[in-house]
Design a protein around this nucleic acid. Structure first.
Length: 372
DNA sequence: ATTGCTGAAGGG
């Protein structure tokens, strides 16, 4: 509805997300120690509105119909979500169908997802309130993200725990954007990422699910670490997202910045502040990756996984997945031994992988049976 | 599940 109030705390139901088409959530933390940051605004981001767009299409149209453009182009994507890559690990084709035909989920699945989302929201609200800020531009949306980060970083350092921390950075040449469930310091002073996974049934996930989840949190660490190490620069971001750093921010965004003790006039200012905050706040890289599986209905802890971060392996995998996105290879379905995933897949009836041989044909020829 | 030329994640 028309929200002319300065702040509006959302109700705790997940349905509060329903009318957010032109608004953005601001995580509203205590604002005590945010004053110091308004000092050094001298260096602005490079004001180069890059004019390089859409010219990869004309290259190979006569080839063979396929590969006219990469999936990045085809879906008009400037960046990927972390969960795009992790669901791609579950099944690349299913993920691709999901992009192409959104809203294919069965009501049962939707209900499970919805329940999970509600549980996550409830936990988020334990740590901070939500504030609705009306926005009109993509620049505004990113500004809210940055303002959230500016308030969360000091909170992590002083109180030791934050939830829903935004991350973004380059992964194998593509910008990848995500949201870390929770970051906190342990009793030993280590920075731990805690990812919560809720489950419909009170059972531990199978190995395939664990691997997908481990990849997800590994990507978070990879990106977060690169942020605190200064590898994610304002100029680089602007290049990827094609934002205008000098375009004036919306009045409601500016008002909230001021209320948070942040004095900026443009997105470029804000990005510089975030960059400084990330690199000069003594944030460590993430020491521990933890995944906790709980039962939706009873909140019983089903299991806890500690993921060991293998950078080489993560990058190798990411490279493989990105190769699909940039059009270097066709999408693949699951391997034969994982064809069980197809049983619950919303796209099993239209899946070309199954029709054309992929896993199915292999499953249907049980000839190499070993009688031992 | 919906919204979107992009809240990202939600679970199997």
């Amino acid at each position: 509805m028309a929200q002319t109030r300065d702040e509006e705390t959302l109700p705790a139901e997940a349905s509060g997300f329903s009318d957010m088409s032109d608004s953005e959530l601001l995580e509203f933390l205590d604002l005590e120690d945010a004053e110091e940051s308004g000092a050094s605004l001298s260096k602005l981001g490079p004001s180069k509105p890059s004019k390089t767009e859409g010219k990869a299409v004309s290259l190979q149209n006569h080839k063979r119909g396929t590969n006219v453009s990469s999936p990045m182009d085809k879906f008009h994507l400037k960046y990927l979500y972390v969960t795009d890559l992790s669901t791609q690990k579950w099944c690349e084709l299913q993920m691709a169908y999901g992009k192409e035909l959104p809203g294919f989920l069965t009501p049962e699945k939707a209900d499970v997802l919805d329940t999970g989302a509600s549980i996550h929201l409830a936990r988020e609200l334990e740590l901070h309130d939500l504030v609705t800020v009306p926005i009109t531009t993509r620049e505004d949306a990113w500004a809210i993200k940055f303002l959230n980060m500016l308030s969360m970083i000091p909170t992590l350092q002083s109180e030791g725990r934050i939830r829903e921390f935004p991350v973004f950075g380059e992964v194998e040449g593509i910008l990848v954007v995500g949201m870390i469930d929770e970051l906190h310091y342990t009793a030993n002073g280590e920075l731990e990422l805690a990812e919560l996974k809720t489950r419909r049934r009170p059972m531990l996930p199978r190995a395939a699910q664990k691997k997908k989840d481990a990849f997800q949190v590994s990507l978070y660490k990879y990106i977060f670490d690169s942020m605190v190490q200064g590898k994610v620069t304002p100029a680089g971001l602007i290049h990827h997202i094609e934002l205008c750093p000098d375009k004036p921010l919306g009045p409601s965004v500016l008002r909230h910045a001021r209320q948070g003790g942040v004095s900026v006039k443009s997105l470029g200012d804000l990005m510089e502040l975030v960059f400084l905050s990330l690199t000069l706040s003594d944030l460590p890289v993430i020491d521990i990756l933890k995944i906790e599986y709980i039962h939706q209905e009873t909140a019983t802890v089903l299991g806890t996984e500690i993921v060991s971060f293998e950078e080489k392996e993560v990058r190798r995998e990411a490279q493989h997945y990105v190769a699909y996105w940039v059009g270097h290879r066709e999408p693949q379905g699951v391997d034969v031994e994982e064809a069980w995933k197809c049983q619950t897949c919303d796209y099993k009836d239209i899946c070309e992988w199954r029709k054309g041989g992929g896993a199915l044909s292999a499953v249907l020829e049980p000839q190499a049976k070993k009688p031992k």
